[in-house]
Amino acid sequence: MTTTHTVPGTLLATTGITKRYGSLTAVDDVDLAVGRGIVGVLGPNGAGKTTLLRILATVLAPDRGSLSLLGLDPASPAARTEVRRRLGYLPQSPRLYTGFTPLEMVDYVAILKEHTDTARRRREAASVLEAVGLGDRMHKRIRTLSGGMQQRVALAAALVGTPDLLVLDEPATGLDPEQRIALRSVLAETAARGCVVLSTHNTAEVAALCQQVLVMDRGRICWSGTPAELAGEAEGRVWESDAEEPTALRSWLTGPGTRRHVGTPPAGAALAVPTVDDGYLLVTRLAR
């Protein structure tokens, strides 16, 4: 089995990974080093987030560059299998066997994660379903569950086997606010012992959950840091007024009826406290 040498504490590292689909470069020369905790990947549609997460989940092999997951190089089949034993993966918009119950679905995934002790496996499947708030629905057919509940079944399938590395592509899709808060606790537990990488469009989710944020655009990581640092990027560059502002990179009408602007404020502008949203907008606009 191939092991790779990375900085101690690093659970996930990439060097120059690139993935192309024909003439489109979906992931372009990405370098990463991530330890324990939760990493959020932000970016506009088509930025390459899903492709990057598929590479990190060993589903796709990069065309170029090297990858180390949990200290192993997944390019080797034996190492890839070993990584997968310790990996949980939630793809974007996953489909399930709708004739199964949540318990049967999660149990099936656990079998394929090579958990062969039936009694223990069933207990763990029930336990992760409890953790995602489906304890009372685990014996209902999946086809009778709402979209949000089906998303939680898929999340439970990713969580089964207490993975050290959890790769989640838009895990909060279809979840209501209460379920989102429950999701945060579940992910925080996993992050206490390993690494969680999640992609999202929801900057509030990132601010609440993540220790590290990566902003992707056109296949590249154009910014990385903490959520506070991302908000800090917009320090002194967010203001509010009643009128359109020609110097603004981006403006929008807020609920109370004033306009919020991100860009270079004019003299005497009423500066506002920046949010992760503002920082993200600024970073992605400046990257273009």
Binding site: R54, A57, T58, V59, T81, E82, R84, R85, L87, Y89, L90, P91, S93, P94, R95, L96, Y97, T98, M105, V109, L112, K113, E114, A154, A157, V167
Partner: peptide
């Protein structure tokens, strides 16, 4: 149908 969900299992 669940191929995407099962894409990263060891089997």
């Amino acid at each position: 149908p669940a191929a995407d969900l099962l894409a990263a299992v060891p089997v």
